[in-house]
């Protein structure tokens, strides 16, 4: 038994060392703004599995609304971009461990997330709708989901919204959007809440699907680490400037083919 007692002691020591290392890596003296300018490179956390916001083009290069926005930021800072592909699951950890300078990845600025990361003003908005099957006539909205199976990507605004709105539904959570969509298409789930633009595209492709009403409205903003006012201030100034020029409305229409559904804060 003595041997066991000692090994537990070592585990405790290892835990403390790891915890300290974590803290040390997360702290930095100068603002991310100065770091980026000095480095000449912007580390952008992007989500490339969420068309039309982030995806790969035919040449395997990042493209989409979020990608255009990141390029515009880099242009203003006069720095190069290094793309870091993130998922809705790992984007906050990537930000908190300094793997990226900012996250532009259909990142909804919810109050809960804002306890962990800081958000800029929103640059986009969209409607979340319920995608379902025509044959399920008794499902008309999220109110009819008692005992039904709902596919979502874990931790997304869809997940948060439907968990709250349909407490009696069976919610199955997947790692990323393509897997969740595949599970829904294979009828492992009855419905899937998703962005309206994506749902419209799916309904056009598959005549058996239909949209079962609105779930919630959501915004997208740029996420940065908390406690770095200089960096947040610069990004908000950028947002004010380009928002004032109507740049975001223009980019949304370019990629989605429709107007932005909910009006953004006016400048």
């Amino acid at each position: 038994m003595r041997r066991h007692g000692r090994s537990w002691g070592w585990i405790a020591v290892l835990g403390i060392v790891l915890a300290l290392a974590w803290t040390a890596s997360a702290s930095a003296a100068e603002s991310t703004l100065d770091q980026v300018l000095k480095r000449g490179k912007l580390l952008v956390g992007i989500g490339l599995g969420a068309p039309p916001f982030g995806m790969y083009d035919a040449d395997k290069k990042p493209t989409g609304y979020d990608v255009d926005l990141a390029k515009l930021i880099a242009e203003e800072l006069k720095v190069e971009i290094e793309w870091v592909d993130t998922t809705s699951v790992n984007r906050i950890p990537y930000l908190l461990t300094n793997k990226v300078d900012l996250v532009i990845a259909t990142f909804g600025n919810t109050p809960e997330r804002a306890k962990q990361v800081a958000f800029t003003k929103p640059y986009s908005s969209w409607n979340l709708v319920l995608l379902g099957w025509k044959k399920d006539r008794n499902i008309k909205s999220y109110k009819d989901l008692k005992g039904k199976t709902v596919a979502v990507t874990r931790g997304t605004t869809q997940d948060i919204a439907i968990t709250k709105l349909a407490p009696e539904a069976k919610i199955v959570r997947y790692e990323d959007d393509p897997v969740a969509m595949l599970a829904f298409e294979q009828k492992k789930a009855d419905v899937m809440p998703t962005a309206e633009v994506l749902a419209l595209k799916k309904v056009k492709e598959n005549k058996d699907m239909e949209i079962k009403g609105l779930v919630s409205r959501s915004w997208a903003a740029i996420g940065v680490r908390r406690g770095d006012p200089d960096w947040l201030q610069w990004l908000n100034t950028f947002m004010d400037w380009h928002g004032g020029q109507g740049k975001f409305a223009e980019l949304f229409e370019k990629w989605n083919g429709v107007q932005m559904p909910v009006a953004l804060p006016r400048w």
């Binding site: 699951v89 906050i92 908190l96 931790g155 948060i160 959570r173």
Partner: peptide, 9 residues
């Protein structure tokens, strides 16, 4: 699941 709600990775 908890991580996606609290972000305390």
């Amino acid at each position: 699941f908890l991580e996606s709600r609290t972000f305390r990775t």
